[in-house]
Amino acid sequence: MKIAVCVKEVPDPTAEKRIDPDTKRLVRSGENTLNRYDRHAIEEAVRLREGAAPGAEIAVVLVAPASASRTVDKALAQGGDRSVHLADDGLSGSDIVATSRALAAVLARDSYDLIVFGQQGSDAECYVMASAVAERLARPCVTQVAALALDGSSLKVKRQVETGYETLEVSLPAVISVSDAINEPRYPSLPAIMGAKRKPHEVLSLADVGLAAGDVGVDGSRTHVSALSKPPTRGDSVKLEDDGTAAEKILAFLVERKVVA
């Protein structure tokens, strides 16, 4: 069985996020890291390899700048067997539709039985990439999977919808995205961290995946950010560090706000 896990590089959560007023894009030149939601996707693939799909091969697939090698290593330490990394200057400025085109082109080079996505990017909070890529590959797709079981050539899954939980059965090859509650990702062992660099790394250009510059980036995008503005804010807020008296301070605040008599 061949599994692909799509992982995204995102700005480190501790770094201040900023939008460049000229390009109106998220500044990605700061510290970057592996999208935390994608650790659950890798973990789920590893559990399949350890369980119902012995010997499964797990490829970590990403579309990211060439500088993303730390992110690649993290994903491989987490359990991937090899990485496939599309890195090309022409990709910058890609919107959802353009990114899905790039990702689908990389995925189409191989015959994956299962393609796994994280529930969302922590930067964009957009959560629809799995559906977009599945449509390009003409594969069935279930998003936000909370539990799964492999049963021969089909996958039985459970996920939450607005009216409760539903169970679905999808035949492979398929695309899924997983909820961040599907598992508790393990911490990579020291040998896994050391070994990540020695795993096969494939770095591809747009030409390698059969795409032209106009297919992605700004030209391949179908949306354009014309301006930025400030949303209304909630008003004054107080943030404090607990020095042992936080409970007293919360109570005083609640009394002052008259929500506690």
């Binding site: 919107d95 539709v97 977009a132 797709c141 998003t143």
Partner: peptide, 22 residues
């Protein structure tokens, strides 16, 4: 919604249309 967001993404790809989420 779960169905709405996923269908929108699939439709945008199908129509080569722009997609704005959220």
């Amino acid at each position: 919604s779960i169905v709405g967001s996923d269908a929108a993404a699939g439709l945008a790809v199908r129509l080569d249309a722009g997609l704005v989420i959220d």
